[in-house]
């Protein structure tokens, strides 16, 4: 009943949306893998970064893509400082406490955002928003293509950093063997802070890539993070490859679900795949046993 070209366009659209999901999910899975916590503040921090992008554009006229280096670096700094001053200090070394602190942080940030930014939906007008690129039978918005490419590049760069640099190796070492890491002289608390910083930096980048096509309200981070959380569990908690594959899978599912079932009902596909994977492979696609 559907034209295959229609399907093709749906898959392409899903892939493009998946790029951003991957970025948000990679940050979440990195924080989970190293700190062993779900970062409940993820959505709120994404929203903050989106407002940062919005106000940089509105007040100084900086294009969201041009703001990427600044917002990403700023987000890293914010994450690092949050960990050092708040999360690390008041968790007293207990993972449950980190969880509660990030949850509390999320509530505070959301309400402060509501107070200062108001509840109105804000969008950015970029001149290239209406530009479409024709691929086969599919017309794809140019900003989505740029965002997709940029998130792939960022994820690849992060992957290389984690594999090659001493800090990247130290982060992976701390994720699995904290005591051994201390014994080679790795500053574990610093690694936690850097990991949290990188996780939040991913959100900063994602915010820049989202804003040309998306809107921001004080609650708009949560929608993404709920999806990102699904991706992380789907791909396997703490797995980079899992976050990447899961992100695209969910992006395509959501797009095709929307196509066949409509915008509202389309989200069902995500939950369906989620439940199926958990039934068939509870550790996720790339997950290993704890």
């Amino acid at each position: 009943m559907f034209d295959p070209a229609f399907l093709f366009a749906g898959i392409l659209n899903g892939l493009l949306a998946g790029g951003i999901y991957v970025l948000v999910a990679v940050g979440l899975t990195l924080i989970y893998g190293v700190l062993h916590i779900i970062n409940f503040a993820h959505g709120s921090l994404l929203m903050l970064a989106m407002y940062a992008v919005f106000y940089l554009w509105r007040l100084i006229g900086i294009d969201p893509y041009a703001a990427l280096p600044v917002v990403t670096a700023g987000a890293f700094g914010l994450g690092f400082v949050l960990y050092r001053l708040l999360i690390g200090r008041y968790s007293h070394g207990r993972d449950e406490n980190i969880l509660l602190i990030t949850l509390g942080l999320s509530i505070v940030i959301d309400n402060v955002a509501l107070l200062f930014f108001g509840g109105d939906t804000q969008t950015i007008d970029v001149p290239y928003a209406g530009t479409f690129v024709e691929i086969g039978a599919a017309f794809l918005p140019l900003p989505k293509i740029i965002s997709f490419g940029a998130s792939l590049v960022i994820c690849a760069a992060l992957g290389v950093y984690m594999a090659r640099s001493d800090m990247g190796k130290a982060i992976r070492a701390v994720a699995k063997e904290r005591q051994g890491a201390r014994l080679v002289g790795i500053d574990v608390e610093n690694v936690f802070a850097v990991s949290y910083g990188i996780g939040i930096a991913c959100l900063g980048a994602a915010a820049c890539l989202l804003m040309p096509t998306y809107y921001v309200t004080p609650s708009s981070g949560h929608a993404f993070v709920l999806v990102a959380f699904t991706i992380v569990v789907l791909g396997g908690m703490g797995s980079f490859a899992g976050a990447a594959v899961g992100g695209f899978l969910i992006g395509i599912t959501e797009s095709l679900g929307g196509l066949f079932l409509g915008e509202q009902l389309g989200q069902i596909g995500i939950s369906l795949i989620f439940i199926l994977i958990l039934l068939l492979k509870p550790t996720g696609l790339f997950g290993s046993k704890a």
Binding site: K169, R172, I186
Partner: peptide, 30 residues
């Protein structure tokens, strides 16, 4: 560790997810 006192712990405590080379290289992290 920086001062030159290094412990090889009971139970090895190697980094299971890292390659042998990366494990060794991290030995000279500090």
């Amino acid at each position: 560790v920086k001062a030159g006192l290094v412990q090889v712990p009971e139970g090895r405590r190697v980094f299971p997810n890292l390659s042998v080379r990366d494990n060794l290289e991290l030995g000279s992290y500090r």
